[in-house]
Write a protein that binds this DNA or RNA. Structure first.
Lengths: 310, 310
RNA sequence: GGACACCGCCUUCC
DNA sequence: GGAAGGCGGTGTCC
């Protein structure tokens, strides 16, 4: 180590700890591949990555992670931008203000300050957020009231199953649909056609995740259960390097579906900022899981709805 | 700049050519959607994608595609092994001798040589074949007396109807049966339970074909009539790619029922080697075809026999 | 090369 | 309506 052949890129930046709470092996791993092994093919695997070993261990132990981020925290409040909120990575914040005329953003040392900054403009610029959030006002109020949570002992966790469908995927006339399942006859369930011209399975899967995040109040912990390994990886692993590469994949092409992926990340960050957790659970598709099948049904129904038939 | 910015992976940029040999339109298409149109709803469509237009055209014309198979032919004669015969893939031959004590095999440049090699040992090791044949003696005699054919101008063609049945297919207690029908009151007819633990319709269908091939003397041309498109495809089309892939299907999983499929192929090869033909004919099931129904009856009866009932 | 999905089609069996 | 089996494809990433 005397000389400088030390071009080691910290591509992945900080060391990560992958906590597997439910999998072939219950443990904390230091590299993703090991973690992957432990969860692949495991029905109902539960895992999450952390930046500190302690957090990871706490997660495995079932404790609420108190987010003891080691690096000096920076909080970027984006008040006027694509998706207002608090971001911990400048690259992410930057993305939110790129191309926006008259953006309003600022760096803060504490999350509270950043939140306050955002909330201020947020109320005045509510229409901006509404584009991402279907619900008009009721949720906004909740966010406000949750911001005064202090040290609530236990946060409610909402489980939600998401699925995407794309009839004739890969064909020109494909019709994609989005399914989000909270429970039987739950008003929050979603079954709708995928918006936009790109009708692919991946966009449908990601959009379902996004819908779930939009629907569950930011104050609640949310657990998203999906069979889309792709979606989970996009928003929990791959996005990190993408953000650093200017959203280029390993083939130096633009990352597909980054619009949805970024929206998801923004919502995750905001939930994190509020002290609530977002976690993902992968389940194998078509494996007799009733809720997963229910989400599938909703997705397929949504896809068919764009048929104009009924 | 002098150096290689040329690392461009052709991973996905390559133009593909979709050859449709059987479909609404017989042609080569350059995009998948057109191809799809041409085959959608077409019963028994035959199509395949290629990377060169010539290969695609050759496929449509029925020629063997040669550019994708630049390797020189090799023939492996397996005289003493699980299923004696001539194999073109070492992996296949290897399977036949694995675990067999005192195997006899050799590589040849031509099929004729390999066949000769196998035939030699074949007559002397006739008992080996008998293990595959359930019937004890009466049939053996026939094979013996027909073995003195030499250059008969026209070879007799034996028509045989095969069918498989699997009562409760897909359920745990399924009972499968094998039916082979030569004619009313024909001694060669077969009606027996499917052996083994995997009681599926596909295994039953394939096993019926295998039985037929075992029963009809190698010197005779044989025409097997079945309603199992699956079986026909397995042993006339799909086996080729499987052999090259190490018996993995397109989803990278082990090909199901390959034990039966390989046994069938081995018998076909042997019949080929002897100058006689094996042909298959597909008929629609349940369409008032008396002989097909007879085979069906035999299969169902065979399935019920394993019930312990009668 | 690997992984997870999303589809189209065929046959059989219930 | 569903299950067992098979073939073909794209969507996306590493």
């Amino acid at each position: 180590m005397s000389s400088g052949s030390k071009k080691r890129k910290l591509d992945e930046g900080v060391q990560k700890y992958y906590a597997v709470k439910a999998g072939h092996t219950i443990s904390v791993f230091e590299d993703w591949s090991k973690c992957q092994e432990s969860i692949t093919g495991y029905k109902g695997a539960v895992f999450k990555s952390f930046t500190t070993e302690q957090d990871a261990k706490d997660f495995v132990a079932g404790k609420a992670v108190k987010s003891s981020t080691p690096k000096e925290p920076r909080f970027y409040g984006v008040a006027i931008g694509k998706v207002p909120g608090v971001y911990e990575e400048w690259t992410e914040a930057q993305e939110q203000i790129a191309g926006v005329k008259g953006p309003k953003y600022k760096k803060f040392a504490t999350r509270k300050e950043a939140e306050a900054f955002v909330e201020e403009h947020d109320t005045t610029a509510e229409s901006k957020v509404t584009t991402t959030l279907p619900q008009p006002s009721s949720k906004r109020a909740k966010i406000a009231e949750t911001s005064k949570r202090k040290d609530m002992p236990s946060i409610k966790e909402v489980k939600v199953y998401t699925d995407g469908s794309s009839l004739g995927n890969g064909k020109i006339g494909a019709q994609a649909g989005v399914g989000v399942f909270f429970g039987d006859n739950d008003r929050r369930n979603v079954s709708e056609p995928l918006q936009g011209t790109a009708q692919t399975n991946q966009r449908a899967e990601l959009t379902a995740v996004l819908r779930a995040l939009e629907i569950v109040p930011l104050k609640d912990n949310i657990r998203i259960i999906t069979d889309s390994n792709y979606s989970i990886n996009c928003v929990t692993v791959w996005y990190k390097s993408w953000a650093k590469n200017g959203w280029q994949n390993s083939k130096h092409q633009d990352v597909m579906n980054q619009d949805i992926i970024r929206s998801i990340r923004a919502l995750i960050e905001r939930r994190d900022a509020g002290g609530a957790q977002t976690s993902f659970e992968w389940i194998k598709g078509h494996s007799n899981h009733p809720s997963n099948e229910a989400a599938d049904k909703l997705a397929v129904a949504g896809a068919r709805r764009s048929d104009g038939r009924d």
